[in-house]
Design a protein around this nucleic acid. Structure first.
Length: 846
RNA sequence: GCCGGAGUGGCGGAAUUGGCAGACGCGACGGACUCAAAAUCCGUUUCCCGCAAGGGAGUGGGGGUUCGAGUCCCCCCUCCGGCACCA
């Protein structure tokens, strides 16, 4: 007779079809139902649909949100759990050039593949709310929000120094550049001056910083944002220039050290450099400035080890003492921070000390270092010295007094400076949102009216910039490019497009009401569903996406369009999934399938290789494809293993043998209910009450309790471990009451939903287990009748005792002292002290 | 250099407020079933001494607090992540 084994390939497509047919995961929309239950909004960071398809890292976070949403749904929450596509971006544009197709076609093809792969995992997404940022009915609303920003004066065009990436043929935002390279590809970036769109995110710096207090996010992500915003308190001080009209401002966090200022430094890009330089110094300064201009940011930082600079020949007037101090030009002062000029205080600043030593400039200490201090610049606290009216004051008091003095004498004021810069918001690409902006022939920038949206991407022949360096959209037909304004003026459309971040700044709002043709989303939907209750994604978005989205959200809040200050109440970062890779002595990689272990060593054929854990990558031949895993073990095993590997937030290596472990667990779960020989229900199942198997009943309640709380706190690895413990025990038990089996299947359902549906149906459960009621645990049954008490002598375990769970101190102490094994170690000595920890242990000290 | 986070068996990892270190899984070893294998099931599995009973050591290293430390404090080492002339 054919055995009825657990067969995920039969079960999984079947239940996925039924879920779809019964619309099991449609978000409730009935107003009465919405009002009657609490809501839960579980959000995944939506993927960019690349041509490479899904890798096993993607589903980790998706599985976690799916498990939580499924449990919440069973617990009676209205659940919103959507998925969509961050679909604008350069790779599709490049593929379009390569294949001679339109980027939209490439994008749709990739989306279909991603959707297929994601659907195989059996996630309970509401596909009716799927969004695609590159679809016209989505990006018209991105343009709509841009108009809101523009109206509020938060979007402007300016000639600014930009990060130009020649390899990409476009500019990049500050956040996209690190060490002079594009963070995604490592392509070098250079400085250029260009007329570009900027968003005034700096206006929101303080709120973006403060409101981090309101959200439940990992501390290190908050820390990264705080650092990126980079608030520092200090003072702006005005310096006059000897013999000239001009003045310049410096920003300092140490106004208390003003008396120690022995020179000033301007950045090479500072506008005053050219005007104040003396004739004698002109050629030296000019060649220094020219040299700095040719250096990339990378070189400037690298060469930072050795400072350099040139005297301008001009002197500044010390605002308090009236002394002359020399003004230098040096590239250790950046034009992009503060005012691009500093007062140098070598006594209290390491960089200034180094520079002063190099060029033999005077050094004056204005804070007395401790007697044993033998360093150079002293940054610690101490009484002010050499500082006239500040002498004797500690730093904080000295700062306050100096700021008061400056304000009184009109020489400066207290000031807060931020590291955060305005957001460079335009790109020279085709595959992005067109700006709803035209340029009139007289140069005026004109925003389109709301009813003129959308501005659709026009077809063009080639996706390269024009020969004279204008963006690809400049190639569009004049029908698109040229417009007449209502007042009769002729105008040209903006040909830059928005950066990829634009679409992801508000997609979580579009999900609330994805089909709305009148508005980006209805206010009542927003009030009901926001904020996002759980947002899971990779830490790589800690600054970029999360900062930009928070910024837009706050603008929408100020427009009265959203009701919460912050969009994402709880954020969680899943750790990256790594994989073993194998390399020989020459560094050549081998596919894991070629490698076998012999003893302690690894070989690929006859070649000895070493193993290591690395990021998955094609070149390292260690990429694991979810389709292959599902093909072999099924989606439930894939889901379970993704979460069982270890703590969600941790990096961890993929191990195929680990998938087999959870696959075996699902087999055991199957056999608990189904007799594999006959295909009928297992004859261990009984209609007897749960109490007929008291041990198992207790374990069930402990399991429900632990699975509920561990799922809530995203400790899914230990929740699964508890389910395994239950199955192991239940397998041993002589009978299995149906009620117990039913509760177990419901607790398993969020994790292995296909198997759970099948078992639920076989057990005769009502409807879908995905929509069944989550089991409740009975606290009284979560405690054992008797507990094991450990008996220690001098802190070492010597014996165990079984006592009633409510046994009092005296009883436990007596029993422990009576223990034969304990007595042996007491060696006849009188106990000096006996510590009783009820329910845990007794420690006898001699 | 600065700021975070982490170091636990052969491996992934568990351990309320300080209270039985190593749950669960992998791997390995032994056994059952089988002509045999796979699958499955049962058992063992931190290390050292011991036939065993039993004993000793043990959570990166060193010190401390405590009846008791993986957990708290101090110093050091290693790894990972972020930032890096931000005045």
């Amino acid at each position: 007779m054919a055995k009825t084994l657990y067969d995920p390939h039969a079960i999984e497509p079947k239940w996925q079809a039924i879920w779809e047919e019964r619309q099991a995961f449609r978000t409730p929309s009935d107003p009465e139902l919405l009002a009657s239950r609490p809501k839960f909004y579980a959000l995944d960071m939506f993927p960019y649909p690349s041509g490479a398809g899904l890798h096993v890292g993607h589903p980790e976070g998706y599985t976690a949100t799916d498990v939580v949403s499924r449990m919440k749904r069973m617990q009676g929450f209205n659940v919103l759990h959507p998925m969509g596509w961050d679909a604008f971006g350069l790779p599709a544009e490049r593929a379009a050039v390569r294949e001679g197709k339109h980027p939209a076609d490439i994008t749709l093809r990739n989306i279909d593949n991603f959707r297929r792969q994601i659907q195989r995992l059996g996630f309970g997404y509401d596909w009716e709310r799927e969004v695609n940022t590159s679809a016209v009915d989505y990006y018209r609303w991105t343009q709509w929000i841009f108009l809101k920003l523009y109206e509020r004066g938060l979007a402007y065009m300016a000639e600014v120094p930009v990060n130009w990436c020649p390899a990409l043929g476009t500019v990049l935002a500050n956040e996209e550049v690190k060490d002079g390279k594009y963070v995604e590809t490592g392509d070098p970036v250079e400085r250029r001056s260009m007329n570009q769109w900027m968003l005034r995110i700096t206006v929101y710096a303080e709120r973006l910083l403060e409101d981090l207090e309101l959200v439940d996010w990992p501390e290190h992500v908050k820390e990264m944002q705080r650092h990126w915003i980079g608030r520092s308190e200090g003072a702006e001080i005005v310096f006059a220039i000897g013999g000239r009209e001009e003045t310049f401002d410096v920003f300092t966090t140490r106004p208390d050290t003003l008396f120690g200022c022995t020179y000033c430094v301007l950045s090479p890009e500072h506008p005053l450099v050219a005007t104040i330089t003396s004739e004698a110094q002109r050629s030296a300064v000019e060649s220094y400035v020219a040299e700095s201009a040719t250096k990339s940011d990378l070189q400037r930082t690298d060469l930072a080890k050795e400072k350099s600079g040139v005297y301008t020949g001009a002197d500044a007037v010390h605002p308090v003492t009236g002394d002359r101090v020399p003004i230098w030009v040096a590239d250790y002062v950046l034009m992009s921070y503060g005012s691009g000029a500093i007062m140098a205080v070598p006594g209290q600043d390491e960089r200034d000390w180094e520079f002063a030593e190099l060029y033999d400039l005077p050094i004056v200490r204005t804070v007395r270092p401790p007697a044993d201090f033998d360093g150079k610049a002293y940054l610690g606290d101490g009484p002010a010295i050499n500082s006239e009216f500040l002498d004797g004051l500690e730093i904080a008091a000295a700062k306050a007094k100096m700021i008061a003095w400056l304000e009184e004498h009109g020489a400066g004021s207290g000031r807060v400076e931020y590291r955060l810069r305005d957001w460079l918001f335009s790109r020279q690409r085709y595959w992005g949102e067109p700006f709803p902006i035209v340029h009139a022939e007289d140069g005026e920038i004109v925003a389109l009216a709301y009813d003129e949206l959308p501005v659709e991407l026009p077809p063009i022949d080639e996706y390269r910039p024009t020969d004279d360096g204008r963006p690809p959209l400049a190639r569009a037909d004049p029908d698109w490019l040229e417009v007449s304004l209502p007042d009769g003026r002729k105008a040209t459309r903006e040909t830059n497009t928005m950066p990829q971040w634009a679409g992801s700044c508000w997609y979580y709002l579009r999900y609330l009401d994805a089909g709305n043709e009148e508005l980006p989303f209805a206010p009542e939907a927003e009030r009901y569903w926001m904020p996002v209750d759980l947002y899971i994604g990779g830490v790589e978005h800690a600054v970029l996406h999360l900062l930009y989205a928070r910024f837009w959200h706050k603008v929408l809040y100020d427009c009265g369009l959203v009701s919460t200050q912050e969009p994402f109440q709880k954020l969680f970062n899943q750790g990256m999934i790594l994989a073993y890779s194998y390399q020989d002595a020459q560094g050549k990689y081998y596919h894991p399938d070629e490698v076998e272990e012999r003893g302690e060593r690894f070989f690929a054929g006859d070649v000895e290789v070493t193993s290591q854990v690395e990021k998955m990558s094609k070149s390292k031949l260690n990429v694991v494809n979810p389709d292959d895993v599902i093909g072999e073990y099924g989606a439930d095993s894939m889901r379970l293993y993704e979460l069982f590997m270890g703590p969600l937030e941790q990096q961890k290596p993929w191990q195929t043998t680990g998938v087999e472990g959870v696959y075996r667990f699902l087999h055991r779960s199957w056999r608990l209910v189904v007799d594999e020989g006959s295909g009928e229900l297992s004859n261990k199942l009984t209609d007897a009450p749960p109490a007929s198997e008291p041990e198992l009943e207790r374990l069930l309640h402990k399991t429900i309790k632990k699975v509920s709380s561990d799922t809530e706190t995203l400790q899914m690895n230990t929740a699964i471990s508890q389910l395994m413990i239950f199955v192991n025990e239940a397998t041993q038990a002589s009978s299995l009451p149906r009620e117990i089996a039913s509760a177990f299947v419901r607790a398993l359902a969020p994790y292995a939903p296909h198997l759970a549906e099948e078992l639920w149906a076989r057990l005769g459960g009502d409807g879908l287990v995905s929509l069944a009621e989550w089991p409740e645990h009975d606290e009284a049954l979560c405690e054992d009748e008797t507990i094991t008490i450990v008996v220690q002598v001098n802190g070492k375990k010597r014996d165990e005792l079984e006592v009633a769970k409510d046994a009092d101190r005296e009883t436990v102490e007596e029993a422990a002292l009576a223990s034969e094994k304990a007595q042996r170690f007491l060696d006849g000595k009188e106990p000096k002290k006996v510590i009783v920890v009820p329910g845990r242990l007794v420690n006898i000290v001699v």
